[in-house]
Every structure is written in structure tokens, then in C-alpha cells.
């Protein structure tokens, strides 16, 4: 009996059949879907981190009594940071199960996944998607604290010289601001520096650095637009 005859006999006796092709196709499709899904989810996380960084007003840290590191950590959404790491690991694991993944070193796969997530995330951030998504999560998930909410908590601190709200009326030396609780503040802007892109018109939402001078009076030293740095990515819908 030849070796092949022995093999054939074994295959027939044990009723062994090839695994159907669709199972292999499905497996590969699943692996690629997992890879792409992980890259996209990682990208969304990265875009929200970008949004948080953009909204963080790092220049403000000197006005705050907490340690800078503490404040940075408070502003960066750690949930998303953890999410990015988890989905990045998932993307790498999925990619390593593709047919020819062994052609590339693990380090190369890591960099490709990171680059893909960062590029997609940056596009998502520029298009304004990160901000919208953060709002949706904030509105629908009770446990989720949106970046806007964190920012609002940070900027509503009149005793520490931080205030934000909508302009009710504006003159050359004063303006009236309505804060988030509906309280109207008299703001002196005589010596204040205003960001060049800022327009002091009724309805405009702004943030102010300065000094509280009374119950509802405030001396501004700097005026900034609420929406951070411009463009679709961080601009408020008013």
C-alpha cells in the first residue's frame, strides 16, 4: 500500500471533507471588518481627544490654582484615551490574522494602524464630527461628561477670575453678560484685551478672564470667543 493509498483510506474512513470555502471567506471578512471598525473607532476617539485639546485653553493654566498636570488630565477625556488604546490593540490583533500580515513586522503594523487612526481622526475632527459626537454622548449617556460640560465647569468660576456667558448688550467700555444660570453681570472691558477674531455683539457667547469686583460685577482683562480656536471643528452653534 502506498503512502497516498493509506492517506486516502484514512480520509474516506473518517469521512473527512474540506472545510467549505465560505467559512474561510467569512473569517477573512470578519478580520478585515474588525480591523477597519477598530481603526474607525480609534479614529473617533482620537478626534474627540483633539477636540478636548483644542478646547482646553492651555494658556489659561497659569490662572488656575490646581497643578497644571491635574488640570490637563481633567480636560482630556480619559475614557476616549483608553478607548483609543484598546481599539488600536484590537486593530493590530485583527490585522495580524489577515492572510499576508506576516510580511510586515509588528512595529510596522502598529505604525500603520496609528497613522490610519490619526489621519481619519483628524479629518473627522476638522469636519466638526468630534464636537457633534461629544454633544450627542453628553445628551444621551448620563455617565458621560462631555468636553463642553467640563469646559463650562472650568469657566464658571467668578471668584477665580473666570466667567462665560452670552452678551446681552455691548458698549465701548462695558458689556452686559448673561451667565449659564441666567444671572446678568456688568463687565468692565476698558482695559481688556480682546482676541482679534472676537465680535462683541449681542448673542455672542464669550469667555472672560479677569477679577470679580462685586456680586455681579466683573473687571475683564481678556476676552475670548467661547468656541475655542475657530473653524467648524470647535465653533458653537448659536
Amino acid at each position: 500500500m502506498t503512502n497516498y493509498q493509506k492517506l486516502e483510506e484514512r480520509l474516506r474512513n473518517e469521512g473527512m471533507k474540506p472545510i467549505p470555502k465560505w467559512i474561510f471567506s467569512l473569517r477573512q471578512t470578519f478580520v478585515w471588518a474588525l480591523f477597519l471598525g477598530s481603526v474607525v473607532t480609534g479614529a473617533i476617539g482620537f478626534s474627540i481627544i483633539l477636540y478636548a485639546v483644542q478646547q482646553a485653553d492651555f494658556s489659561l493654566l497659569s490662572h488656575i490654582t490646581h497643578s497644571p498636570m491635574e488640570k490637563i488630565l481633567a480636560l482630556i477625556p480619559l475614557v476616549w484615551l483608553a478607548g483609543v488604546i484598546v481599539f488600536l490593540a484590537l486593530a493590530i490583533t485583527a490585522y495580524r490574522h489577515t492572510w499576508k500580515a506576516y510580511k510586515f513586522s509588528p512595529l510596522y503594523i502598529f505604525f500603520i494602524s496609528v497613522l490610519l487612526s490619526m489621519a481619519t481622526g483628524t479629518l473627522f475632527f476638522i469636519s466638526g464630527g468630534a464636537r457633534q459626537l461629544d454633544k450627542v454622548f453628553d445628551a444621551t449617556l448620563s455617565v458621560y461628561e462631555g468636553i463642553e460640560e467640563k469646559k463650562s465647569q472650568m469657566w464658571y468660576n467668578p471668584d477665580k477670575g473666570l466667567l462665560y456667558g452670552d452678551i446681552m448688550s455691548a458698549e465701548s467700555k462695558n458689556l452686559v453678560l448673561k451667565d449659564k444660570n441666567g444671572v446678568e453681570w456688568q463687565i468692565s472691558i476698558q482695559d481688556a484685551f480682546a482676541a482679534p477674531i472676537l465680535t462683541l455683539e449681542p448673542g455672542e457667547k464669550i469667555k472672560i478672564i479677569g477679577k470679580r469686583t462685586g456680586d455681579h460685577t466683573f473687571d475683564a482683562s481678556e476676552l475670548r470667543p467661547w468656541g475655542g480656536h475657530h473653524g467648524k471643528a470647535g465653533r458653537d452653534n448659536r
Binding site: 503512502n3 492517506l7 480520509l11 473527512m16 471533507k17 474540506p18 467549505p20 467559512i23
Partner: peptide, 15 residues
Amino acid sequence: ILQDAFVKIWKNIHS
């Protein structure tokens, strides 16, 4: 060893 390997080859021929 070869026979065991060819059983695997047969089962996975579609891959």
C-alpha cells in the same frame, strides 16, 4: 508526520 500534515492540507484546501 506527512500523513497528518496532508490530512490538514485536505481539510484546509479551500483556504
